[in-house]
Amino acid sequence: MTRLLEVQDLQVEFDTWDGRVRVIESLSFALAAGETLCIVGESGCGKSMTALAIMGLVPQPTGHITAGSVRLAGEDLVRASPARMQAVRGNEISMIFQEPMTSLNPVYPVGEQIAEAVRLHKGLDRDAARSRAVEMLRAVHIPEPERRVDEYPHQFSGGMRQRVMIAIALACEPKILIADEPTTALDVTVQAQIFELLVELRETRGTAIVFITHDVGAVAEMADRVIVMYAGRKVEEGGVEDILERPAHPYTRGLLACRPTLVLGDPGARSELAEIPGVVPPLHQLGAGCAFAPRCAQALQRCGVAAPPETRLADGHAAACWLLAPSEGAAA
């Protein structure tokens, strides 16, 4: 496995009125070329911040990457110069966001916005950039790309705009595409189309995808590997089968149980939707122990005392939980 992107002990902190808050704590993972890694978790667990940290876009001036490294093909992006990061963004690592309705600039035709990316990074002239824009619109399956290239964002639907965002992101053939909940704001049918498109583009272009979502259905659809995050920490990591079929961490299991299931024809079979009691704790109130312990039904006494180490369960499958720690293994 060639490691394209390697995140090592990443730590991100924010200055708030309540003091410094650690939103990501010693996060490590790797991304291989051409693979899809899903990062799952509830709102506020640090998924999006992880993406922004990779892009070097942690909100200034309150946010800081205080430790760790993000290595792209060996080069540490955390220590790269702002100019170097500008050359990386959109060219080697691209990102698409949650809100396709507002992520395009309303005063420029979509074609120009795609062309902007290639003109910035590849130095193409106007005509070449424009034909590249048409080509990209065709690649994301927008009908009549020659005509629509001159249209403005307000003339596109939400799903079409997300396609345009994907076209912009992939115009420079980046090695990595970070998709931050790209389908959350879209209709379910359109979501499926976007998934399909991302899968297709990954196959044809070999782009590795970091897919951030809170939707377990999307994970099943997209992922090769999965990272489950809780309160800024990685609680479990594994292949998509490991996570979906053999979830080890109580939080992962809870997350999977929270999916509604459809049972047709028998109203009585409609089961109560499971939920994880409580909410993600405010990050400045995290104690010394496992962040999930207050909500965990199986919490042991030591869970509140010290953070659990990561335990290897199988090849590529690991979880951070005291229940799984070797000494407690029998208890679990």
Partner: peptide, 16 residues
């Protein structure tokens, strides 16, 4: 606004 973040994400400079 979101599109400014998008511009940053494609590597646009502050001046741009």
């Amino acid at each position: 606004l979101d599109f400014v973040r998008s511009a940053r994400a494609i590597g646009a400079s502050n001046a741009r």
